[in-house]
Design a protein around this nucleic acid. Structure first.
Length: 834
RNA sequence: GCCGGGGUGGCGGAAUUGGUAGACGCAAGGGACUUAAAAUCCCUCGAGGGUAACCUCGUGCCGGUUCGAGUCCGGCCCUCGGCACCA
């Protein structure tokens, strides 16, 4: 018997696939396409188990769909720009490009060792000018369409690193890299008008329901944060200033007893100017500014504020109400100013109690509990009838709100409006290792895009990073000194680069025509391949990447680049790989190196284990013994195969014409066909690979029992080997998406008519999954008391009398009144007695 | 605080529409083979009781619906994520 030597088999088939370009695909309108995509990796150094899990899940599906005769596109590339390359470059005194390309080489080799069925001819790297040229092209299109614009805003700044940080890179108010405090700074930069697409992004979430995990859709919906309400103007007394507020509760307007401005609101300082409150206000603003955002927002209990010294008029009551400023009002939500209705908002009530401000009840609670304005400590924030509200009294909820809005509009003091939580996406990064922004700043012409024929604006590779990580682009004259494309006078390039999320927002489109020279992608190719039918990746991208990509796709729609409605039709978010109760990480020291596993057990074992240990969407607990078990399973498959291969090599498998009366042969055929059904449904309908593999294990266990039985027979039945061949083929074919190497080898040794890569997925015959006899469970009052074998076509009446005549059942029913008998066809009989 | 996911043997996990709870694997125990060990093959394996046939209990807790509940409903506890002064 040839021993199972995974390393030899795997190297052989990987070389075969590479040489024959087995997984290369072309557009072919005669075939149904399937776009399978895993989130492309950041080339951080070496692959980890999270990658292995991600790509194994995707590859299994890709191989399955290929066998189901889809034209499967399955590409891989590299999300190759980003800060870690710069950090590593500084640390190791190398260049980010060198570091990145070295990592890509290492990781590509590791990924190939897993036997993943990628079309490597479509490989891309976002740091390559051939790719980022199209980032720049798109940026200019966005500018033309008014999607990209420039503004001054607050950013996270690390003084020690001399760089802007993304929100995710701020940990507890400090820089993740050097642990220094992060400052809030005003700075000009480029933004994308994602807010204009908020409603369409929200609409899209609804169409994705059932195809994306609800959790992800909920997170996106919350992130977009749509609230409907009203904008209301409050006139400042003895001034021509107006304070615009946003509220979701216009029906509580009569209860607005004071106003609160965000400390950063421009009116906060200007209103208090010259009043005796001015010093107090200035001190308060300074105090709040010194707190970082995290400290200010995490400490939700501590509400603090100061009176500005000015009053405004409640437009509905005509009352004068004081204007305050307080830390709990945020400048970047709504208008940065609120009306305070303490009786019906808990925060306002807390604030009113702390500073002795008045409270007025204007909503009648539904239950007849009376609210006492003087003593209440819990605001009533649910709907109810308006009271103390003039002509509006008695109106309730939605109707009340829309009546108030009508009134506001008619009297030009406000209007119904919608407010979103989502903010425009700031894309400028003061970093080096990214896509240069293709813009020239001219003193005469202002902002001028680089001409299309001048793209790409190449990132200078001879640049040296500053000691502290400063981008050399800001100081590299040969880069930024240029002339204005419009007026030819001396001008300066934009020295910022684009957020790397720009690259990842459309890379899946580029895969459809990865080498195209004159466009980001070919419309026909794109139209054929897009959308991605199945996207597989981590939940950590639930908002950023997945939302940005959906946004890009909408913009692409608007500028006629694509017809795809949503870029990712189905999304699967895989769970984390856990060891000893924590996510694998270097700092925790619980990392298992995929290379070690492949070296010791082979890629097939690694793949089987990672799919078998848990369903894809759940977290997976790593277990060395579990790996051993999976290795054992493959060896077991190999041994039973070797046991029979000589006898079945030149046979045809049993087909529908074969009939046998031998019970064991019939049973093996039934197991074979049931297994095909189970594996097919587990992959296709449930995406539950663990149970699919379990089903194959059961079939293999059955083959061992069959072998044992066979050895006891004095003569071999004429059909035995044909049935065995059918079963062995089913094992090989159903196992092949999970463990492609061992199955390719077995298929070859067994003389398959075609190579395994061209084989179709096996089908099962419904009639062969059935038996002449079925097991019926007999219950008395819902408790199992007996199990009997009956022939399949038994009538209910027969089954009833059979059940009642069972001695064990009679023990439970004698001297009892039989109330009723419930029959579940082909499953059970329940006798209800009293 | 709000919004999700989850809680099943010693462990990872099955149970697809309300119908035999614990598939499959790991660990453990026993047997076969072997001079022996490893490997392999076979068997047992939720708890308690019983010589046994079997019986009772058992899916986080309390209650409900049902002939029948891991699954449905109401209330709670724990846990893991996400968001969090969003007006």
């Amino acid at each position: 018997m040839t021993p199972y030597e995974p390393n030899l088999i795997e190297a052989k088939w990987q070389a075969h696939w590479e040489k024959n370009k087995t997984f290369k695909v072309k557009r072919d309108s005669s075939k149904k396409k399937f776009y399978l995509l895993e989130m492309f990796p950041y080339p951080s150094g070496r692959i980890h188990m999270g990658h292995v899990r991600n790509y194994t899940i995707g590859d299994t599906l890709a191989r399955f769909k290929r066998m189901k005769e889809f034209n499967v596109i399955h590409p891989l590339g590299w999300d190759a720009f980003g800060m870690p390359a710069e950090n590593a470059a500084i640390k190791n005194n190398t260049h980010p490009a060198e570091w990145t390309f070295e990592n890509i080489r290492t990781m590509r080799k590791q990924i190939k060792a897993l036997g993943l069925s990628y079309d490597w001819d479509r490989e891309i790297a976002t740091c390559h000018p051939e790719y980022y040229k199209w980032n720049q092209w798109l940026f200019i299109k966005f500018l033309e369409k008014g999607i990209a614009y420039r503004k001054n805003s607050t950013i996270n700044w690390c003084e020690a690193c001399q760089t802007v940080l993304a929100n995710e890179q701020v940990v507890d108010g400090c820089c993740w890299r050097c642990d220094n405090e992060v400052l809030q700074k005003q700075q000009e930069g480029w933004f994308f008008k994602i807010t204009n697409y908020a409603d369409r992004l929200l609409e899209g979430c609804k169409t994705l329901s059932g195809k994306w995990p609800e959790q992800v859709l909920t997170m996106q919906t919350n992130w977009i944060g749509k609230s409907t309400g009203a904008e209301v103007d409050f006139k400042v007394n003895d001034s021509d200033q107006v304070i615009k507020i946003f509220t979701t509760r216009p029906d509580t307007l009569f209860g607005a007893m004071f106003m609160v401005l965000a400390p950063e609101h421009p009116l906060t300082r200007s209103l208090s100017r010259g009043t005796k409150q001015e010093p107090a206000i200035d001190a308060f603003i300074k105090k709040v500014n010194q707190q970082d955002t995290i400290a200010r927002t995490s400490d939700a209990g501590e509400k603090e504020g100061v009176f500005t010294g000015m009053y405004a008029t409640n437009p509905l009551t005509g009352d004068s109400i004081p204007i305050w400023t307080a830390n709990f009002v945020l400048m970047d939500y709504g208008t940065g100013a609120i009306m305070s209705v303490p009786a019906h908002d808990q925060r306002d009530l807390d604030f009113a109690r702390k500073y002795n401000l008045p409270v007025r009840v204007v909503i009648q609670p539904k239950k007849e509990e009376a609210l006492d304005e003087k003593t209440m400590t819990h605001a009533y924030s649910a709907d109810g009838a308006m009271i103390h509200s003039g002509n509006f009294d008695g109106l309730i909820g939605q109707e009340a709100r829309s009546e108030v809005c009508k009134y506001l509009k008619k009297n030009k003091i406000g209007k119904a409006t919608v407010n979103f939580r989502i903010r425009d996406w700031g894309v400028s990064r003061q970093r080096y290792w990214g896509t240069p922004i293709p813009i020239i700043h001219c003193d005469r012409c202002g902002i001028v895009p680089v001409n299309f024929d001048q793209l790409p604006v190449e990132l200078p590779l001879d640049a040296q990073l500053g000691e502290k990580g400063q981008s050399p682009l800001h100081t590299l004259e040969s880069f930024y000194k240029t002339e204005c494309p419009k007026c030819q006078s001396p001008a300066k390039r934009d020295t910022d680069t684009l957020d790397t999320f720009f690259c990842s927002s459309w890379y899946f489109d580029r895969y459809t025509s990865p080498r195209l020279q004159d466009k980001p992608f070919d419309p026909e190719d794109n139209n054929y391949w897009m959308p991605v039918d199945q996207y597989v990746g981590g939940i950590e991208h639930a908002i950023l990447h997945l939302l940005y990509s959906r946004f890009f796709n909408l913009v692409f729609n608007d500028i006629g680049l694509t017809q795809t409605k949503e870029p990712f039709d189905h999304l699967l978010t895989q769970g984390m790989v856990i060891k000893d109760g924590a996510k694998m990480s270097k700092s925790k020291g619980n990392v298992v190196d995929p290379d070690e596993i492949i070296k010791n057990y082979g890629a097939d074992t690694a793949r089987i284990f990672i799919l078998f240990a848990a369903p894809p969407i759940k977290d997976l607990e790593w277990s060395d013994q579990g790996v051993e078990g999976c290795s054992r399973f493959l060896k077991r498959v190999w041994r039973i195969f070797c046991e029979f291969v000589d006898e079945i090599r030149s046979l045809s498998a049993a087909d529908e014409n074969l009939s046998t009366s031998v019970k064991e042969l019939k049973e093996l055929r039934r197991m074979t066909h049931i297994t095909i059904r189970r594996v097919t449904e587990d992959i296709e309908k449930r995406m539950q690979f663990n149970t699919a593999i379990a089903a194959i294990m059961e079939l293999v266990n059955h083959l061992y029992l069959f072998k044992e039985w066979k050895e006891k027979q004095s003569e071999i039945d004429e059909n035995l080997y044909a049935v065995m061949r059918e079963s062995m083929e089913a094992v090989i074919l159903t196992l092949s998406p999970f463990a492609p190497h061992i199955t390719a080898e077995m298929a070859m040794l067994m003389n398959f008519s075609k190579s395994l890569d061209e084989k179709k997925w096996p089908t099962y015959k419904e009639e062969l999954t059935q038996t002449d006899e079925i097991l019926i469970v007999i219950q008395v009052n819902g408790k199992v008391r007996q199990k009997i074998q009956v022939y399949t076509g038994i009538s209910d009446e027969e089954l009833k009398s059979l059940s009642l005549n069972e001695p064990r059942i009679q023990e439970w029913t004698q001297d009892k009144e039989i109330k009723k008998i419930i029959i579940v066809p082909k499953k059970l009989v329940n006798i209800v007695v009293k």
